[in-house]
């Protein structure tokens, strides 16, 4: 990063922040793909997916995200209850 003027340094910083957030996004995809593969792909691999495996994968991604959202909601409700009862 030496010998860059201020504007260029800022531009590179913005670029790196964007790439870092993209990398976090990609890491989530790798993680969910691994989880959903284990849950949905149970047949011996052949030249195409077995019946239901593709739709299972699609549903798996949706339900995984729903699960995260649901847990956040449960925890925030519990916090509200604790706050109002004390």
């Amino acid at each position: 990063m030496d010998n860059f003027d201020e504007a260029t340094q800022k531009e590179l910083q913005t670029f790196l922040e964007k790439e870092q957030s993209q990398a976090r996004f990609n890491a989530s995809i790798h993680n969910i793909a691994s989880l959903c593969w284990d849950k949905c792909v149970t047949s011996t691999p052949s030249s195409r997916f077995a019946r239901g495996e593709e739709s299972c994968l699609t549903n798996c991604v949706g339900r995984f995200l729903d699960t995260s959202l649901h847990l956040v909601e449960v925890v925030s409700q519990q916090r509200q209850q604790m706050a109002s009862s004390s």
Binding site: I29, I32, V41, P45, S47, F49, T58, C60, V61
Partner: peptide
């Protein structure tokens, strides 16, 4: 043979997951 098919299926699964996740987000 199993490994060849499995690699193809894993890449396909990854593509499905990536597409679904991206469109949801």
């Amino acid at each position: 043979t199993c490994l060849t098919h499995c690699l193809e299926r894993y890449l396909e699964a990854f593509t499905i997951v990536s597409r679904t996740y991206t469109s949801r987000v």
